[in-house]
């Protein structure tokens, strides 16, 4: 049973990873990151059930909070960038090149 949860979680995580790597739109990227976080949350909650302690639940809650904060910040940044550029394609943001 736990294996199923874990597999699902890992698959979701990989989807998120793929999304971050392959997508151009800033929103999609952030959504993919959220997906990764939620994959982790799933694993936390499932494992918490497995180990019969609450640590996983607590972490899942914390992750949610942090994801929210990050999303808030991301939204602010995206609005800012949209104001500057009028576009949300990551390729447009090229003032800085490593």
């Amino acid at each position: 049973m736990i294996a199923n949860y874990l597999s699902l979680s890992v698959i979701l995580f990989c989807f998120g990873l793929l999304g971050v790597i392959s997508r151009r739109n800033v929103f999609t990227v952030f959504m993919s990151i959220e997906l990764m976080l939620n994959a982790a949350n799933l694993a936390f909650v499932a494992l918490s059930r497995l180990h019969e302690n609450m640590d996983g639940h607590v972490l899942a809650l914390m992750v949610m909070a942090v994801a929210a904060a990050e999303a808030a910040l991301a939204l602010a940044v995206v609005i800012l960038l949209h104001k500057h550029k009028g576009n949300l394609d990551t390729n447009v943001f090229s003032l800085l090149r490593g």
């Binding site: 809650l61 909070a65 904060a69 939204l75 602010a76």
Partner: peptide, 22 residues
């Protein structure tokens, strides 16, 4: 932009509320 701000505030406060349930 107020709407966005509101959305952000909601996000944060709501999550804080979520902490309180357990």
């Amino acid at each position: 932009v107020k709407f966005y701000l509101l959305a952000i505030l909601f996000l944060i406060f709501d999550i804080e509320a979520v902490f309180m349930y357990p």
